[in-house]
Design a protein around this nucleic acid. Structure first.
Length: 417
RNA sequence: GGAGGAGUGCCCGAGUGGCUAAAGGGGACGGGCUGUAAACCCGUUGGCUACGCCUACGUUGGUUCGAAUCCAACCUCCUCCA
């Protein structure tokens, strides 16, 4: 039983997506009355989005599934300016080619989560470079700049934090919030967008847009943010062993993606199941109550569901069976990361240090050496004690590969070719 | 334009002539405990063809037997003044 009338807001609250909203009752009423159009912007700062962006993506998906029209805004224009929110220093400025390449990489992931098309609730993708690039500076300032006071802009966290810490904030970055506000207005005009959503760090940027819409167009716009996701122990989401958890499959293997979810903290399982899977809430409530070793089942389910959404059923299944063989049976699954090494080279023998580095288990020979000294390096599950040991064809096991392990969790296979 | 302050390893931050590959903390990695959690404990944390060599304390030069430490110029940032 929910206090909200609309399917969207009820689910939003039930699945813990809501952090702040400009006017939840009014938005609820509007959503109950028919399809609403909302957008979320994504800047093109990297060739792939990572799990930090997954909450907004899942939110768009939920929005669409509850009968509304999502718009994905690619920040082709705003990326050139750089959002200062939550950052201490200015990012390196990206050139047009890099932005275009990043955008191409990012675009692909949305097709997995949203249905695009021309229908009333089909998703649409737009690029703010289309309207930002050709703005006339002076007219823009006269038309919109007069609606922003410096006094107010200085009070926003994105600006205030930077100034308080005596970190430089350039005029370029200072303009970001104005451009984002303008985006909202532009989308309201072009696509009848009435709601902008985003992470909680976007709150300031979003309400600027809501206010601008009211002032220059007398439009009633809404803003809504999701909580900033950290793990139960306070770490930022998405960073781990080898860096970010990328959504694109060419940036991170399905196996590693699956593993990421499988290794989440106990205390996060329930929340993650709500946010990142579409399991019925009753089932989630059952799973999150599991204790001790049993909660591992809930984590596997989480990993399965999350991987299916982002990488497909087959990839999820393969990742799971690989993980089960590797960890539960001490064997090795076919989906472990692997490298090909020429048979002749193997016959001659390769130093362990080099082998670990080639397999991506260490970044340098020095690190491989430390791994060995710490007792964490294994070849075919046998601990390596000699840094000068070599790996050769003789160690190819019955499966035709050599298994290297760094610690308990990181494994790689050497495949002779 | 003037005056003052600052720039150190992935990050924060100590270090004001040799004992400094650079304290301490964070992060990360490895080990232990466990459940492929968390918390906690221990270890490691520039590179290499490794009892040695190379690279590193904003940049470039200089002083010195010897510099992250002294000097000069330059670059960048902060604060105050005009």
């Amino acid at each position: 039983m929910s206090q909200y009338k609309s399917d969207f807001i009820s689910k939003l609250v039930e699945r813990q997506y809501l952090h702040q909203c400009t006017d939840i009752e009014a938005l609820d009423a509007k959503a109950a009355g028919g399809p609403v159009t909302a957008y979320i912007g994504f800047d093109c700062t990297a060739p792939s989005l990572h799990v930090g962006s997954l909450v907004p993506i899942m939110l768009l998906r939920l929005f669409q599934q509850t009968g509304h029209k999502p718009i994905v805004l690619m920040g082709g224009g705003t990326t050139k300016v750089g959002d200062p929110s939550g950052k201490d220093d200015q990012r390196k400025l990206l050139d047009d080619a890099a932005i275009a390449a990043n955008m191409a990489g990012i675009k692909s992931v949305f097709k997995k989560f949203l249905t695009f098309g021309d229908g009333p609730t089909d998703a649409v993708m737009v690029n703010n470079a289309d309207w930002l690039e050709n703005l006339n500076y002076v007219s823009f300032l006269r038309d919109y700049g007069r609606h922003f006071t410096i006094n107010r802009m200085l009070s926003f966290d994105s600006v205030k934090l930077r100034l308080d810490r005596e970190q430089p904030l350039t005029f370029l970055e200072f303009n970001y919030m104005i451009l984002q506000a303008y985006d909202f207005l532009e989308l309201a005009n072009r696509h009848s967008v009435s709601l902008q959503m985003g992470g909680s760090d976007q709150w300031g940027n979003i309400i600027n847009g809501v206010e601008l819409g009211r002032r220059v167009a007398e439009k009633q716009l809404y803003g809504l943010t999701t909580p900033l996701l950290t793990t139960a122990s306070g770490a930022k989401m998405g960073k781990t062993v080898d860096g970010a958890i990328w959504l694109n499959e060419d940036a991170l293997s399905a196996y590693d993606y699956w593993q990421y979810w499988r290794n989440c903290e106990d205390a996060d399982v329930g929340r993650f199941l709500r946010l990142f899977t579409e399991m019925p809430i009753e089932e989630i409530e059952r799973l999150e109550k599991l204790e001790g070793a049993e909660i591992n089942d809930a984590k596997k389910t989480l990993a399965d569901e999350a991987t299916q959404l982002c990488r497909g059923d087959k990839a999820a299944e393969l990742a799971r069976s690989t993980a089960e063989t590797t960890f539960e049976q001490g064997g090795m699954g076919e989906d472990l990361p692997s490298i090909d090494i020429a048979r002749a080279e193997l016959d001659a023998g390769i130093g362990v240090l080099a082998a670990f580095t080639m397999a991506g288990l260490s970044i340098s020979n020095g690190e491989a050496r430390r791994l060995i000294r710490g007792g964490g390096a294994k070849v075919n599950d046998q601990a390596v004690s000699d840094e000068k040991a070599t790996i050769s064809s003789e160690q190819i096991n019955s499966d035709g590969v050599i298994k290297l392990s760094a610690g308990k969790k990181r494994h790689a296979l050497i495949k002779p070719v």
